[in-house]
Nucleic acid binder design. Structure first.
Lengths: 259, 259
DNA sequence: GAGTGGTCTAGACCACTTT
DNA sequence: AAGTGGTCTAGACCACTCG
């Protein structure tokens, strides 16, 4: 395949078409790790677009880490694998689909309660404002995997309690019915030991290792829309992260502290 | 503070000066969550730069998530906290500095061994190629926190074994002495139970929960330079992640699988 | 209709790398 | 000197949002 066939009709942005062509060549192995991409100049003349447009295409590939550019040298395919398993904001169903497991959810509770303590704090609610609480047992390939408790401000989705089937995808419903798209989530991960009811529900021995997640999900605007506390079996679940070295430009310096 | 004082002398790029001014106004709280940024047009005319330059400044703020843009509306400060504690590629010393703890390292072993099994695989080495192995007990505020085993190809830093003081920062040495800057790392996190020698070194009871990390670090070009296996006490260590919703443009589809 | 960001052009000069 | 990416200009048209 070669760089050709740019559609100027305007249905797809030019830089996006170029980006996709390059991405495809990398994905197919036609461009391998370490190989140089066509230079901005070459793309520009070959496809009859301006250099800024060619540049946009390459820059967007740099942003996802599969390409890197060096001033004076060129742009090259990086050796990083295109992993599909890195930890992202995913619904349980999406996550299971990625790892090829069959998801199932068993509702353990679904009610409306006043926000209190950490829930109110996380969701920026006044105490006593109502939240929808949804407890579910998450099951993968018929084996219990985790227990999740979600809390969502009732005011964001007033009739969710009446109309939502707790065996289906919460994220999909929030998006389709209320226009709420979760964009970012902050999570704290702890490791602990299973005990009592949790061990029983997860069908593991007391004292088995578990992950404990505390997650707050946000829409792009930064408003918190969901607080989740969950416990996952460590024998059947692991976390895969891709960590990046933060750009020094945005390094947040420690606030000066006397003493 | 206002948008002023652009230095056209060329020592700092214009877009970077603008980006820093905006960042500073947000950091100081002069622009708060939800507030609109000056429009691209306004920045352009007020500072006498082209619109593309103003746009570059805003886009770079979008990339780190503290600003978001909506076509037809404008660019706004997002409500996300500027967290300095999200999991990044950090050396132990850097990580401790961030959380305000005093780091210490006690060497447990420092030798050169042939790469085998998972180490060879991770670092793309032939079996029997030499790797430098460094085992260290990591200590925070005088309390044992974790045990780390690092493996680095000897060919990348031939005389490291002879000259490196294992109580100091490995990353800093790699960068300063060999020009190796780690840019990205992939890690797998598991939860398990402490036992035997590890429990003893960490001074915790057998059966206490621990995190088990397996990390491969890469330079920007994608070459693997370090394999690390470590065990951390779960009672004194937790993980803080910021997860993002992946852009559908780069979603990697499941490879078709028969059956 | 006016204002916004999204895309695009056709140039330009610069810093950096390689020959 | 020639080629590369990094920055920058001064325009342009478009899609979208809001009054």
């Amino acid at each position: 395949m070669e760089l050709t066939c740019i559609d100027h009709s305007g249905v797809e942005p030019l830089y996006y078409q170029i980006q996709q062509q390059l991405f495809e060549r990398i994905r197919l192995g036609e461009l391998k790790a370490g190989d140089p991409l066509p230079s901005e100049q070459e793309i520009s003349t070959r496809l009859g677009v301006s250099r800024m447009t060619a540049r946009l295409a390459i820059k967007s590939l740099c942003e996802v880490g599969i390409v890197y550019s060096k001033q004076g040298k060129g742009s090259f395919v990086s050796g990083l694998k295109l992993e599909k398993n890195f930890r992202q904001v995913l619904s349980f169903s999406e996550e299971m689909a990625q790892s090829g497991r069959r998801p199932e959810s068993r509702p353990l509770g679904f009610d409306i309660v006043p926000a209190e303590g950490e829930v109110a704090l996380a969701l920026s609610l006044k105490p006593q404002e109502k939240v929808i609480r949804l407890r579910r047992l998450r099951i993968a390939d018929s084996v219990p995997l985790g227990i999740e408790s979600s809390y969502i401000p009732e005011k964001l989705c007033p009739d969710l309690k009446a109309t939502f089937d707790p065996r289906t995808s919460l994220y999909q419903t929030l998006s389709a019915r209320y226009g709420i798209q979760i964009a970012i989530a902050d999570e704290v991960v702890e490791a602990g030991l299973a005990k009592g009811e949790k061990a029983r529900l997860l069908r593991i021995a007391k004292g088995s290792p578990v992950f404990i997640f505390t997650r707050i999900s946000y829409v792009q605007q930064g408003q918190a829309v969901e607080y989740v506390k969950s416990t996952y079996r460590a024998d059947r679940y692991k976390i895969v992260n891709r960590l990046v070295r933060v750009k020094h430009r945005f390094a947040v310096q420690e606030d000066a502290k006397s003493s």
